[in-house]
Simulated assay, not measured.
Amino acid sequence: MPTIWLLLRHGKTDNPEQRCYGWRDVPLHPDGQAQMQQCAAKLQAVRLAAIATSDLVRARDSARYFALPRSLDVQVFAALREIDFGQIEGLTFRDVEEHYPVTAREWVAAPAAVRFPGGECFADVRARVIPWARNWLRDWEQQTTLLVIHSGTMRALLQWMTGCEPHATLMVKIGYGDILRCTQEHLDAPWQLEAMPYGATAFTSVALE
């Protein structure tokens, strides 16, 4: 049997100004709750062995829509948090340009390399996510599991699975409620990646180089 990971980005949060929310614990917007209801209905026939999520409320609350109908516990891991934006948490990009101009320029020029002041860079996210991923793979090999997480966490997992350059993961659009299906036929086989954006009804192949 193959190992299948379903990576789901949590539902929409209340963030019309596009503020930087990484470790800031913001709740789901009502629209995000509706998104998760629809995603749960779309995956209702999928048999899941386990569900993991970050400890941030927007991910935990999203995961419950999938756990409750299956009577599964949601396994919560701080290692699966979004990137820590540090001192720019809660700021808009315009705020960052005004108060942290060097960071703003680096973010535009090399988004996969920028380190946020007082926070993390993409390599830091990988450093905490990859050991977790290896343990999860060991525990749930040849089973289907759901990871309800964040776009930054998903990109770290994609980079680990494929060995691509970090910036290549930025080419994959990951919106609220989007699902990536990652399949490994056996332990040493390459991962096969497929995406089903929110609102779609089928998976399509994803290639990362």
Score class of each variant (00 low, 15 high):
W136C: 14
T3K: 00
G175V: 05
K12T: 14
R115T: 08
W136I: 10
P131I: 04
P131K: 10
A109I: 00
C182E: 06
G32F: 05
V57F: 03
V74K: 01
H10I: 04
R9L: 08
I149F: 03
A34E: 13
D61G: 06
T103M: 01
T53G: 02
D14R: 13
A45S: 15
K173F: 12
R115D: 05
G118T: 12
L28K: 04
Q35R: 03
E120T: 07
L72D: 02
P117R: 01
T3Y: 00
F77M: 03
P117H: 03
T201A: 13
P27S: 07
A133H: 08
L158T: 14
A110K: 06
H29V: 11
T145E: 00
A67T: 02
I83G: 09
I130M: 04
Q184R: 15
E106K: 01
L158D: 08
G119L: 14
S205H: 10
I179Y: 11
F66Y: 06
I149A: 11
P131R: 09
M154L: 06
G177D: 10
S62Y: 03
F203M: 07
Q87M: 13
Q18K: 15
P190N: 01
L56A: 11
K42Q: 11
D178A: 10
G32T: 03
E97A: 06
D95T: 14
C121P: 05
A168K: 12
V76L: 00
R19Y: 14
Q75S: 14
V96N: 08
L28I: 05
D61K: 14
A168T: 15
V125F: 13
K12W: 12
C164Y: 15
G199L: 06
Q142M: 11
Y21P: 08
T162A: 12
E141T: 00
M36K: 01
L43V: 05
V125D: 10
F85D: 08
R134K: 15
V26H: 03
Y176C: 09
A113V: 14
H29K: 08
T162M: 11
A109D: 13
A34W: 04
K42I: 08
V74L: 00
E89P: 06
H99N: 09
Q192N: 13
V148M: 06
E106I: 01
A63L: 01
E82A: 07
L146V: 14
C121I: 02
G177P: 03
M161L: 15
T162P: 08
E106T: 05
Q159H: 12
L187E: 08
F203Q: 06
M161G: 14
V129P: 11
T162I: 11
Y176D: 12
L180P: 03
R105P: 00
D95E: 06
A79W: 07
G152D: 09
Q75W: 01
I51F: 02
R94C: 08
D14K: 13
D188K: 02
G22W: 08
T204S: 08
P190K: 01
A34Q: 11
P117Q: 01
L8H: 07
C39Y: 00
R60I: 11
G11F: 06
A109Y: 02
S205V: 12
I149H: 00
L7H: 04
D55N: 05
G163Y: 12
Q87F: 07
R138E: 14
R115H: 09
E185I: 02
S205N: 07
A110E: 10
A113L: 15
R134C: 02
E98D: 13
G177M: 01
V96K: 11
A202T: 15
T92K: 09
F203D: 07
